[in-house]
Design a protein around this nucleic acid. Sequence first.
DNA 1: TAGTGGTCTAGACCACTAG
DNA 2: TAGTGGTCTAGACCACTAT
Lengths: 246, 246
Amino acid sequence: MQVRVADDIRLKIETGTLGPSDQLPTLDELAADHLVSLAVARKAVDLLKQQGLVITIQGKGTFVRERPTARRHGIDRYAKSRWRSGQAILTAEAELQGHRAGQLIRELAETAAPAGVAERFKIPVGTPVWVRRRTTLVDDRPNQLADSYFELDVVNGTRIREDDTGPGGSYARLEESGFELDEITEEWSVRMPTGPESAALRLPAGTPVVDLFRTTFDTMGRPVEVMLAVIAGDMVQMSYRFKIPD
Amino acid sequence: MQVRVADDIRLKIETGTLGPSDQLPTLDELAADHLVSLAVARKAVDLLKQQGLVITIQGKGTFVRERPTARRHGIDRYAKSRWRSGQAILTAEAELQGHRAGQLIRELAETAAPAGVAERFKIPVGTPVWVRRRTTLVDDRPNQLADSYFELDVVNGTRIREDDTGPGGSYARLEESGFELDEITEEWSVRMPTGPESAALRLPAGTPVVDLFRTTFDTMGRPVEVMLAVIAGDMVQMSYRFKIPD
DNA sequence: TAGTGGTCTAGACCACTAG
DNA sequence: TAGTGGTCTAGACCACTAT
């Protein structure tokens, strides 16, 4: 029955009988209308929550979820001209799409390189590295937990260790230090968030996250930055364009 | 309490007290051990299922979920040398990683172009196009619902309309028809599966899916194929490498 | 047949929202 | 204060697995 009820509601949403942000019948009403117990009506709504179709707000009601306009991430956001002209990647990207970007620094510290990071730097796990942990915001909603790692000799004595990295951000500072940035590797996978991640990113139920490893190489092929980001899945859309290899 | 119980179990999993494919205590035991009702124990296990940490099998028990070895998708899978030598992309990719690939054709038909497809072909929504729907399998588990769309004049009279597209697959046939394949765009986003998708891909609870649009262009810049794939999120890992644009 | 998870009922009480 | 969703209990019965 719970599936019946859920399907009933889903149909109403998909056909537009219930539009975005519309309020669903209350649990009591759903139970009465479908001649089921309150627990079953609740279970049906839970199913829809898990599929990301509705959200519930205690004390208010159940509502059809609005699909947030996903931000498109294209590789143009890395264009050298942008950060050379003093614009941080984050800001450039958001503004291109009419959004307001922000960030909170969560931690600046020396730490032991975790496995995925060490592997990409080709150094032993546990080697001391510098980490810059931040939460990025789009229109005041947190959308990424982004941790950037650097080898110590790369950042010592630069503004990358500071709260404010200055115009153009870390990339601009790296270039000033003599690293000519050349290539980027992006590797990602998908999963459901852990409890703390759900809270930190204020994720609605039924929202997956994307794990993104971004490695930046200089012209010598040296990985100069490894970033590990956990991105809110409902706010991301990536796009890549490439030549078909021979 | 449900959260307490769930956290308790999660801790055991994360510390390795419970390893992959180990069986958890039964719901009755969990309830008794934590002095809660059966319903609460069940709710706790539900939470872990949603986070993809455990799976339940009716009649058998609850088990710590094994993380399937995600397949890495790199752009090398599109290398011309592969399909020119008669190897389909799907097969090449799987074999590179020691897996067995397969596919089931779900439908071959003329259909009206849906919005996302029409947009990428730059044709009006509803224009008749050819669609080739298939379910791809890796080691006998379905991992993608992949629908390839082609404009009619591109596929008429070719083996692309047939069940077996022949050596090298559609790409090889397109080249034979005089389309010189050149570039690909991949655009993806993430969401939770719908009910039918969950069933078709045999997704464990708490598994997201990836929506992938792949558009293949020829040297004239014409989009010759648009593929829309729904990929099981627990079996995918994508990687891209690119030069930093100027 | 015993043991496991899945669904459902009926009802108590709590937490949050809004007028 | 009334209305809403959230948590929890106690218990019945069903569906599937293994022996």
